[in-house]
Amino acid sequence: MNHSDPSSRRGFLKAGAAVGAALCASPVAGNAVAAPQQPEASVGITAMDLPVIARTRTLGTGRYAMEVSALGFGVMGMSYNRGPHPDRKALIALLRQAAERGVTLFDTAQVYGPLVNEELAGEALYPYRDRVSVTTKFGHRIVGGKYLEGQLDSSPENIRRVADESLRRLRVEAIDLFYQHRLDPAVPIEDVAGTVGELIRAGKVKRFGLCEVGAQTIRRAHAVQPLTAVQSEYHLMWREPEKEVLPVLAELGIGFVPYSPLNRGFLGGAINEHTRFDSGNDNRAMLPRFTPEAIRANLAVVEALNTFGRTRGATSAQLALAWLMAKQPWIVPIPGTTKLAHLDENLRVAELSLSQKEVRELESAVAKIRIVGDRYPAAQQRQVEGQ
């Protein structure tokens, strides 16, 4: 991998800073990049020499299998929980640039914003609607366009309503993959699965998924409506899914989509104890793992990644993603970004393969480090442990 500054993201950011405003190329046909055009809705940024992802992976099996690019894109941080971001035109251009370069899996949710993240994905990806898959989620209580913090609603009537509204915001005829965002203890998972199954038969949804659930919940849901994928946090600093979730997914033939694969940007190496998350739109300000003390202690993980990557021409972010992709062929990470330089960095992971020996060596180096801080405050942690 030929990067001028392989041990950090600075080289990519310098390259990105040199990029001017300009074009959004025309859609990819197969693996070939078509000649740049200027479609009516196109605004944006000049492409760097970005690689094209030609490799694909399959989430799920049988009738509900879903073939997607080996690396997806998490749209959330473009408008929710990640601080300041560029204007809407720049975000649209970046999403289209990802689609141009072969990314076919884009992830959003009703609660992101709320609502506006789906609208952004819908507008940006409308020209690519026949080439990409956009996944979204239901399950939080939103009234009058406002999220009622901590309140869940996976009642059948709400699932149906959210599906109809998400279809309009995403500008699609059917939702490619519809996840329950958090387990609702008031609604049996069998009722949730049955309702999504009805939406599938009605042609409004194509596939069913769950987020942050345990093995027994997965089994119960899958018995009613086969699951295509489960989405949970998973990265070198949080490996809990390996205990029960990944084994049951392997047994049942269900795919896995790790969100926050870079631990909310931390594993990219650009965050330190002096970083402030005070924009009013950054949930890291309330996460125990992002206090100055925790950051200072956990930077040892980034240092281990940089040491490992220095002789391999890879950044800490690239190694973190490559490690995930080496774990199983049915794992598809969904890193997000608002920067073209970081998109370039992420896409180049397709050029990097870790051997099983390297995977074990990397895991051994990180295992020697004590991770400081919980990933969520207690109230949010109860939602992901409620299965």
Rank of each mutant, 00 (worst) to 15 (best):
S26I: 05
G74H: 02
V19S: 10
T58I: 14
Q37T: 15
Q38V: 15
P39F: 12
G30W: 06
A54H: 09
M76W: 04
A17S: 04
T46W: 03
A35S: 12
L91T: 03
A35F: 09
R57E: 09
S7E: 11
S42G: 12
G74P: 04
I53F: 03
K14R: 10
D49T: 13
G72C: 00
G60F: 11
M66W: 09
G62K: 05
G62F: 04
L50K: 03
R63I: 12
P36V: 15
R82K: 06
A90S: 14
A18S: 11
T46F: 03
G62T: 04
V68Q: 01
P27T: 06
G74I: 07
P86L: 07
A15T: 10
K89A: 15
L91Q: 05
G30N: 13
P86I: 01
A15S: 05
R9F: 11
Y64H: 09
A70W: 01
R10C: 05
G62A: 08
G44S: 13
A15Q: 11
G60R: 03
V28D: 05
A22G: 13
A47M: 08
M48F: 11
A34N: 11
A35C: 09
I45G: 02
I53H: 01
N31D: 12
G77K: 06
M66S: 03
L91D: 00
Q37P: 06
S26A: 15
R10P: 01
V28S: 14
A15V: 05
G11H: 05
P39G: 13
A15D: 05
G77V: 03
K14D: 08
A32N: 03
P84W: 09
M78Q: 03
T61A: 13
H85M: 05
T61N: 10
G60Q: 11
F12E: 02
A47D: 05
Y64C: 00
N81I: 11
G74C: 07
R9L: 15
A35L: 15
R63K: 15
R82V: 02
L50P: 01
A25L: 10
A22V: 06
S7R: 11
M66K: 01
L23T: 06
L23Y: 02
P51M: 08
G11C: 08
D49L: 07
L13C: 07
M76Y: 01
G77M: 09
A18M: 10
Q38K: 14
G62D: 06
G11R: 09
A41C: 10
I45K: 02
M78V: 04
L71Q: 09
R88I: 14
R82F: 14
A34C: 14
M76I: 00
A17W: 05
G62I: 07
A17C: 01
G44Q: 01
G30C: 11
A90V: 13
A25I: 04
A34Y: 03
S26G: 12
A25T: 07
C24L: 14
S7D: 08
S69L: 10
A32D: 00
S42P: 02
A15I: 09
N31W: 04
G11V: 10
G11P: 06
N31V: 09
T61I: 12
S7N: 10
G30D: 12
L23Q: 02
